[in-house]
Design a binder for these strands. Structure first.
Lengths: 148, 148
DNA sequence: GATATTTAAGTTGTGCACAATTTAATTTTA
DNA sequence: TAAAATTAAATTGTGCACAACTTAAATATC
């Protein structure tokens, strides 16, 4: 591929991933609107439904987000009564984040989302799994390149 | 997969795409910083390097963005001397966007980016092409689902 | 040919992302 | 153990994204 072809939008992997990510988020929106959640807030809940309690730091490591993004986001979620934030007694640099009853209960309502989204994606179970694995590998690789 | 497994972060295709998109953008950043561009601004230039002149509407159709995003973005690019915006004489609802000499000249400097990024991605030529095709199909599909 | 509808861009307001900096607590090391 | 370095969150400022709305021009319909 020559330089001219390489600079065409249609040949950019970066763009197809970027556009795909935003279209996927749009696909979630009607479902998340019903729960009063944004997409990043939903991701935070996915982590908390699994671990129940975590720190801002650990949450950031899972979601590839920093405190600059998470602090205001978690404040909004606390405002909405979904999570509780409190300074750790053992290490006062850390802030513990855990679910409230309301946040815990949303799990039940959210449980239908994955099936609905998988169906909307138009991918078979095998394609879905293959795409997931491919992405996680690419993510790992690029993340390690970026760390350097 | 049961509901419990389905709600784990590690099984979300949406998350791996979302995180991948942001990590890819980070990979571009040092290169784009040198050109004084943000990632979406780079995408606008990719379109303009190909078409030279377009409208806000057409640009939005290519990039899946609306005027709410593009108008301020294009104003910043105009401020930076990269593009020129002017109302169409034939149809005064439309705003034509075209490159300035400076915007045109950036193409040369940007021409090294695709090779550098492809190398950083760690994908072979075949893997890259396969991933690109897979994504474009997924993007098309989800976009058409979202339209309804 | 006047009125209604549609279209294109811009505006307003909210919520991420993220770089850069600040503050405060903990750990290291001299 | 006092000083230096590191760590965790929070803060500040900029730039997207996008929903909802406004404005103005063009097209359709009556």
């Amino acid at each position: 591929m020559n330089h001219n072809e390489q600079l065409k939008l249609e040949n950019q992997l970066c763009f197809s991933v970027y556009a795909c990510s935003r279209e996927i988020t749009k696909m979630y929106r009607p479902y998340l609107d019903q729960l009063g959640l944004t997409y990043p807030q939903y991701l935070v809940l996915l982590v908390l439904w699994e671990h129940h309690e975590t720190t801002v730091k650990a949450l950031g490591a899972e979601l590839y987000l920093d405190s600059g993004t998470l602090t205001p986001l978690l404040k909004r979620m606390e405002e909405a009564g979904l999570v509780k934030r409190e300074r750790s007694k053992e290490d006062e640099r850390k802030v513990m984040v855990h679910l409230t009853t309301k946040g815990e209960e949303l799990r039940e309502e959210a449980s239908i989302i994955p099936d609905a989204m998988a169906a909307n994606s138009g991918l078979s179970k095998e394609e879905f799994k293959k795409a997931l694995t491919g992405f996680q590998q690419l993510l790992d690789h690029i993340h390690s390149v970026n760390e350097k």
